[in-house]
């Protein structure tokens, strides 16, 4: 079976070492993590962890079952129909064309967010594949540093 890309959301109790339980489960059982995003859910004692992974249907089923077995895990969603976003920030030397950079970022749901004396920072927030396209396209402006977040996702 082919290794499909999957997005899994895990709702966990906000407590010490809960993240290492999740990450340890992946490494211990030989599952792969492509990206990981964690933040507390406002006004609750839970956090939401969004994990992008890859595996056969059988492996994904095992991952969700094993995650569910962890005591501080409340819910595990394996998303099928979802809205998924990532963000990226790019630091670019000031000698490039601001207008072109602004236009490119704009096409990917972003803009220039900071302008310093030597560098500027542009950010985008879009679907993961489109963020990938943006990072391809921005290469012509000789980026000095790139940072890319993990995914966040919600079921439609």
């Amino acid at each position: 079976m082919e290794n499909a890309r999957r997005v899994i959301s895990v709702i966990v109790l906000n407590e010490a070492s809960v993240l290492s339980r999740i990450v340890g489960l992946f490494s211990g059982r030989g599952y792969n993590i492509e990206s990981l995003t964690v933040a507390p859910i406002p006004d609750s004692k839970y956090s939401r962890i969004t994990i992008v992974t890859a595996g056969s249907l059988r492996v994904i089923e095992q991952i969700t079952k094993q995650l569910h077995k962890l005591i501080p895990v409340l819910k595990v969603y394996e998303h099928a129909d979802l809205v998924e976003k990532e963000m990226a920030m790019v630091k670019i030397p000031m000698n490039e064309s601001l207008g072109d950079i602004e236009a490119l970022a704009h096409a990917y749901n972003g803009r220039i967010v900071n302008v310093g004396s030597d560098t500027l920072i542009a950010m985008v927030a879009d679907e993961p594949s489109r963020v990938g396209h943006f990072l391809e396209a921005i290469k012509r402006f000789h980026p000095k540093e790139i940072v890319r977040s993990g995914s966040v996702a919600l079921e439609r």
Binding site: A16, S17, S20, R21, G24, L25, G28, I71
Partner: peptide, 16 residues
């Protein structure tokens, strides 16, 4: 200790 016992217990606690 809890770092070591995590993958070989059903659950563990460090009581602070």
């Amino acid at each position: 200790a809890v770092g070591i016992s995590r993958p070989c217990t059903k659950h563990n606690y460090l009581v602070t």
